[in-house]
Design a protein around this nucleic acid. Structure first.
Length: 108
DNA sequence: GATATGACCGCAA
DNA sequence: TTTGCGGCCATAT
């Protein structure tokens, strides 16, 4: 048993939670962390998603920060891709680039 | 081992 | 609204 095994368990839980997010809905990092049993390990969720391979099947674009905003830099490609995918699923952005969590927030 | 940083969160002022 | 503080976990120095 090494550190990698622990990491895999946590990553697996995070992946499971992220994969459970229905289309057209979004969840915050804290939400995912809580459901994955990580408590307040929101940072771990962010790190894990950042480490995802390019060809992943995971709907990582449905994970945003608590402010209803995309954490990635606006000039980053991931930001653009995330926004586009969300709009494809019907998630609308505010004029400020924010998402109405009361409407699109995932409620398990 | 200690310190700093990071796709962060929640609360208080 | 913004700012500051503590908390979580992994990685780098």
């Amino acid at each position: 048993m090494n550190a990698a095994d622990q990491d895999i368990s946590r990553e697996q839980r995070i992946w499971q939670v992220v994969a459970s997010i229905p289309p057209g809905k979004v969840a915050s990092y804290g939400q995912v962390a809580q459901l994955a049993g990580l408590g307040r390990g929101a940072r771990l969720v962010g790190r894990t998603l950042h480490n995802l391979p390019r060809g992943t099947r995971l709907p990582w674009h449905r994970v945003i920060n608590a402010a209803g905003r995309i954490s990635l830099p606006a000039e980053s490609q991931g930001h653009d891709l995330q926004k586009q995918r969300l709009e494809e699923e019907g998630v609308l952005f505010n004029v400020s680039g924010k998402i109405n969590l009361s409407r699109f927030g995932w409620k398990p």
